[in-house]
Amino acid sequence: MSAAATDHEHALVYPDEPIYSRITAGKLAMWLFLLSDGFSFSGLLLSYGILRGSSQVWGCTTEAIAKTFGCIEEPALGINFTALLTFLLICSSVTMVLSHASMVEGDRKGALKWLGLTVAGGALFLVGQCWEYWGLFGLFGPHHGLIHEGLKFGATHYATTFYCVTGFHGLHVLTGVLYLSAVWIGTAMGKTDANTLEVAGLFWHFVDLVWILVFTFIYLIPN
């Protein structure tokens, strides 16, 4: 095949499919993956809801509860700090969508800047989550982490579901940070286009979307 023909194939317009329009194969594949991932999170959140709904006490978080039900006291989950993490993820979603916007407008430098901020936001979220779990060995204040304070995986449904749901989400954030870092490098090298960023952005927005639900169900809904 001649070089011209190869180039032409590289530039083919995605077919104007009558139902899904010009959605690219990569974008459709990402959507299907996100649906399957959405079912995974749904399973985790549903089991969380079933366990929580059927338990006598959810979280032995005060001395009074511990005395009444004869359970070992566990730490309560902090809302304020997690609200900050939520804010961070929302900010990173905005920077992601602005990165894609810059790429559509042909501003590769702008795309790199916003994408870099998105990666930084994701990395900060991970640091925050580590701080919440382990307290980062006392590096950032007196907080020693939920594990140190007695929220032990396997001890109660309250603790186990907390670590399963937030841990699974944290793995997604880690994956997103690595994925977006790779896209950043590809963009810096001129090997990506707006579609690459849009597909990567879909994953990142999904991570944000799931966190919005996790934040509400795990942290905000009171006992």
């Binding site: 001649s2 011209a4 023909a5 180039d7 032409h8 590289h10 530039a11 317009v13 790429m103 042909g106 590769r108 001129g190 090997k191 990506t192 286009d193 707006a194 579609n195």
Partner: peptide, 19 residues
């Protein structure tokens, strides 16, 4: 493809999105 060859060359411009 023959008629387009000259236009399609632009596709390889690496500074901007190819497609």
């Amino acid at each position: 493809k023959t008629a387009e060859a000259s236009k399609v060359v632009h596709v390889k411009d690496e500074s901007t999105p190819s497609t």
